[in-house]
Nucleic acid binder design. Structure first.
Lengths: 124, 124
DNA sequence: AAATCATGCTACATTATTTGTAGCAGCATT
DNA sequence: AATGCTGCTACAAATAATGTAGCATGATTT
């Protein structure tokens, strides 16, 4: 899989717009999950594998290469860690954690924010 | 592909944590792109296909099913549109647009992140 | 020095997902 | 009844993810 460099054609988009490169990146399995798990501090390859619930080494290594190239992570003596860019990105993403819990709770209860449509039982 | 319902085992995670379901969802090709493109207003299936740069109808339909089930979008007479949940989610994601432009520019220049710097209008 | 261990990582076959093209069925207008 | 929309499905080919095994390197222990 080619690395979604902003300014180039990426998976699903030919425009080269930075947001499209970023959406391609975070639309790859475990890309955000890796950044998410690096929040708790630097980790070795194998430690990171465990934090990511036994992600396969092949995939982990592919993502690490991409994230390194895009300067979202870096490797130091302590292991892999978020770079300055990576920290900024994860900071933006952070509110998803709380939001997802609210969303999950309300989905389960069948309640809904105003104007939302009720799910049919058969769709659950 | 099974739908990443919070509380269930999802692609890459067995914990059932809502954030993992959400990361699975947005880790699927075009899932965020579809929400992103629905910001500019409701769209018919084919209009949406065009906004998403000729995404294949198979994939578009799969994503729409998932997003509908998870109540992030809904279909009305005007076409597909963001639900209340979808709007909330995209609001959280929105800052990625500006950030990605700063990131792209600095990557290209080989410079480092500038935490305090405010982007000029012309740079957005 | 040899054996053991932990590390980052690659090889590779299997399975799952995405892509791209063609086209169907339903409805409205001409 | 022909045309032109619509939402969508079928299906084969291409691409990506998974899971297991294990290699090569360096540090530590015997």
């Amino acid at each position: 899989m080619t690395i979604p460099l902003p300014g180039t054609q990426v998976r699903g988009s030919k425009t080269g717009k930075p947001i499209m490169a970023l959406l391609d990146l975070i639309g790859r399995t475990w890309a955000l999950g890796i950044l998410w798990n690096l929040q708790q501090g630097p980790a070795t390859f194998r430690e990171l594998q465990q934090r990511c619930e036994q992600i396969s080494p092949t995939l982990l290594n592919n993502r690490l290469k991409e994230l390194k190239t895009l300067q979202l992570i870096e490797m130091q003596s302590a292991g892999y860690q978020l770079s300055a860019y990576g920290s900024e990105l994860i900071t933006i993403i952070l509110p998803l954690g709380g939001w997802s819990q609210k969303w999950a709770k309300e989905l389960k209860q069948g309640s809904q924010p105003m104007h939302a449509k009720q799910l049919k039982e058969s769709e659950l």
